[in-house]
Simulated scan of single mutants.
Amino acid sequence: MNLIDGSTWSDKFDKGSLRAILAEHVWEHLTYEEGVKAAKLCYQYLKPSGYIRCAVPDGFFPDEEYQNIVKVGGPGSFDHPAASHRIVHNYRTLTSMFETAGFEVNLIEYCDEDGNFHAHDWDGKNGVIFRSKKFDPRNQGDKLAFPSLIVDAIKR
């Protein structure tokens, strides 16, 4: 499904018909402007109080190897540039993007500007994010290896 093509949405769904949308490591493949456009389309198709659970690589995670993996232009295929990362979000940019589209945003897991990791209690029954502190076996114990910035963007 093309997140920024309104016809792919209208071919599959009625406006106001969805309770939840799960997007794990999708929005980093869109520019900021495309991300806003996609969020606005999602908003149209969600029911009131519906939400997007969105996870992206975290631009504030203080690990050089991780940042090299998630940087703009990679990973992905040179044959398919759209498959590579087009933005590295932090909690401020991702929140701003969804708020611009009309959502209220709740931070779930994220790093702040100083690289400190924050996690709020969340339930996987509302959408499992594999690349998370909660579910990824690489992130168990005291060491984070591959966290995500995770938000719930709620339609009000």
Rank of each mutant, 00 (worst) to 15 (best):
D58E: 03
P62V: 09
N90W: 12
A82C: 14
A83T: 15
D63Q: 06
F61A: 06
I87R: 02
D58K: 06
Y91N: 11
N68F: 11
V70K: 02
P75R: 05
V72T: 04
V72D: 00
G59S: 05
Y91H: 15
S77F: 07
F61S: 01
V88T: 04
E64G: 01
F60W: 14
S77D: 12
Y91E: 13
S84C: 10
G76I: 02
P75E: 11
E64W: 05
E64N: 12
Q67L: 14
F60S: 04
V72Q: 00
H89Q: 07
V72G: 01
A83H: 15
G73F: 00
H89M: 07
P62I: 08
G73N: 02
D79I: 12
Q67P: 09
V72Y: 00
D63S: 09
R86P: 00
V88M: 06
I87M: 04
V72H: 00
D63K: 04
N68I: 07
P62H: 01
F78T: 11
G74R: 11
P81I: 02
I87Y: 03
V88K: 03
R86F: 12
I69P: 00
E64H: 07
E64I: 07
H80S: 14
G76C: 03
A82I: 14
G76L: 02
S77G: 10
A82W: 14
D58I: 02
F61K: 08
S77N: 08
F61I: 07
H89E: 07
V88L: 09
K71H: 03
D58L: 03
N90R: 11
D63A: 08
D58P: 02
G76Y: 04
V72N: 02
P75G: 12
D63L: 05
Y66C: 11
S84G: 13
I87Q: 01
Y66I: 13
F78A: 12
G74T: 14
G74H: 12
D63V: 06
S84H: 01
H85D: 04
V70H: 03
H89A: 08
K71D: 05
R86A: 10
F60E: 09
S77Q: 10
Y66E: 05
Y66Q: 09
G74W: 08
A82T: 15
N90D: 15
G73T: 01
R86H: 15
D58V: 05
Y91V: 05
P75C: 05
G74L: 08
H85L: 08
N90L: 10
D58N: 05
V70D: 00
V70S: 06
Y66T: 11
V72E: 00
F60Q: 06
D63I: 06
H89W: 10
I87L: 03
Y91K: 12
H80K: 12
D79T: 14
V70N: 08
N90A: 07
K71G: 03
D63N: 13
G59Q: 03
G73Y: 00
F61P: 06
K71A: 07
Y66G: 09
V72F: 01
S77R: 13
E64R: 10
H80A: 15
R86K: 15
D63R: 04
G59D: 02
P62E: 04
F60V: 05
H80T: 13
E65N: 10
F61D: 01
F60L: 08
P62N: 06
Y66D: 05
G59T: 06
Y91D: 04
F78M: 10
A83D: 15
I69W: 08
H80P: 00
F60H: 11
Q67M: 14
P62A: 04
